[in-house]
Simulated scan of single mutants.
Amino acid sequence: MVRLFAFVTALLFSIQVHAADIGDDGLHKTSWMRDTFKDLSEDLEEANSEGKRLMVIIEQRGCIYCRKMHEEVFVVPEIRKFIEDNYFVIQINMFGDVEVTDFDGTALPEKEMVKRWGALFTPSIYFFPQEVPEGLMASQVAVANMPGAFGRWTTFNMLNWVVEKGYSSDEPFQKYHARKFESQKN
Rank of each mutant, 00 (worst) to 15 (best):
M69F: 01
R67H: 12
F74H: 12
V76L: 04
E72S: 12
M94E: 12
I90Y: 01
F95Y: 14
V98E: 12
V100E: 01
E84G: 08
K81F: 02
F74W: 11
Y87C: 10
V89T: 15
R80H: 11
V100C: 06
G96N: 06
V100K: 05
D102A: 03
T101F: 02
K81C: 00
F95T: 15
F74Q: 07
D85S: 13
V100P: 03
Q91F: 00
D97M: 11
I92P: 00
V73S: 04
E71D: 14
V76G: 00
N93Y: 08
F95S: 14
D85C: 09
C66Y: 03
R67A: 14
V98N: 11
E99I: 15
V98F: 05
F82E: 06
V75F: 03
I83G: 09
F82T: 06
E78N: 06
M69A: 08
E78H: 01
P77G: 10
Q91Y: 00
M94K: 15
M69T: 09
K81E: 14
F95K: 14
E71H: 09
N93A: 10
D102M: 02
V100L: 09
D85P: 10
N93Q: 10
I90F: 02
D102K: 05
F82G: 09
E71M: 07
E84C: 06
R80D: 13
M94L: 11
G96D: 02
K68N: 12
D85I: 05
E99D: 14
T101Q: 10
F82W: 05
D85V: 07
Y87A: 09
Q91P: 00
R80T: 12
I83W: 01
P77D: 10
I83D: 04
E84P: 01
M69C: 01
